[in-house]
Each structure stands twice: as structure tokens, then as C-alpha cells.
Amino acid sequence: MAKFVRPTIDTKFYIDFSWWQQKGQNLRAFLQSNACPDCQRLAEDTQDQTFDWINPETGEVHEIDVLWHIIHTHCKHDPNFLDSRIPLTSAVFRIFILNDNTPLSPVELHEQIRKKSPELILKTIGGRQIYKGIKPFVPAV
């Protein structure tokens, strides 16, 4: 088991897609809960369609649901996608969808979310309990 390293507000986080596979969780269902009505309509005919997501840091490939790409493309310019009323954890997840899962630190996340504090964001996503695959970005084999 990987050793737990206490992250700081400058530690980069990302969504680890292998966490979803290992946990047997349904990424599409979760993405649907984050999709706007337009995206949901666009995704109607894409059941079971996947694409090869490419990690911008390592070149790793993960085969994930195409709904990710639909939301990423469509909601990029939608100001309501990061509505201030959505829970902090959802806001963090949505930022990673928008930036195509480029690793960000709590300080950088705070700059985009503009609510709470980097420390609170760290406390929310940096504990031992992993929320929706959001983990410190520690590339390793």
C-alpha cells in the first residue's frame, strides 16, 4: 500500500481515473449528475462510448466515458457551470473537467473557485478518505 504523504496547500491534485476502475464506480453516472441539460441531451446517443484520455503530464492513457469530453467541450464557457452554490467537492471536480484534469494545488483551485480558503480545500480533498478519485498527483508505476 502506498505510504500516505501529508499534502500541503501547494501539493498538486488531480482525478485518478484508475481509482474509478479499482473501486468499480460508475464515472458516467457521476458525470451525468454534473452535466448541464444541453450536455445530457448531447450524451443521449453516446451510451457505452469511450475515448482515450491522455494525461497532460505523463502521457498515460485512460479509456473513459465520452461524456467527460462532452462536458469539457460544452461547459467550458458556461459561467453557471461553476455556480457558487454548488458544494466545494463538486466545484473541485468540475474544475478538473474544465481543465481536462491538469493537476492543480489547493491554492490554484482556490484562485478559480473563489470561495472558502486553500486550507479548507486541502482539508476537504487532502485527507485519507479519497473523494471521487481526487488525489495528490504523485506519478508512479
Binding site: 469511450t50 475515448f51 482515450d52 484520455w53 491522455i54 505523463t58 502521457g59 498515460e60 492513457v61 485512460h62 479509456e63 465520452v66 469530453h69 467541450t73 508505476v141
Partner: peptide, 29 residues
């Protein structure tokens, strides 16, 4: 062959790191 709505043709290689660990990587990108 890799599939991505934006990137056209590329290859996905599977790499074995020993001790049972394998990962996919992009190539010809």
C-alpha cells in the same frame, strides 16, 4: 489505435513495468 474526438490518429501502447503493473501510454502523437 487510439481514439480521441479531437486528436485524429495516434497509437496507444501498453507497457509492462514488471511486478504485474501495466499502463497505457500515447504514441505517434
Amino acid at each position: 489505435s487510439g481514439q480521441h474526438p479531437d486528436f485524429g490518429n495516434f497509437t496507444v501502447i501498453t507497457v509492462n513495468f514488471g511486478n504485474g503493473s501495466t499502463k497505457d501510454f500515447v504514441a505517434n502523437f
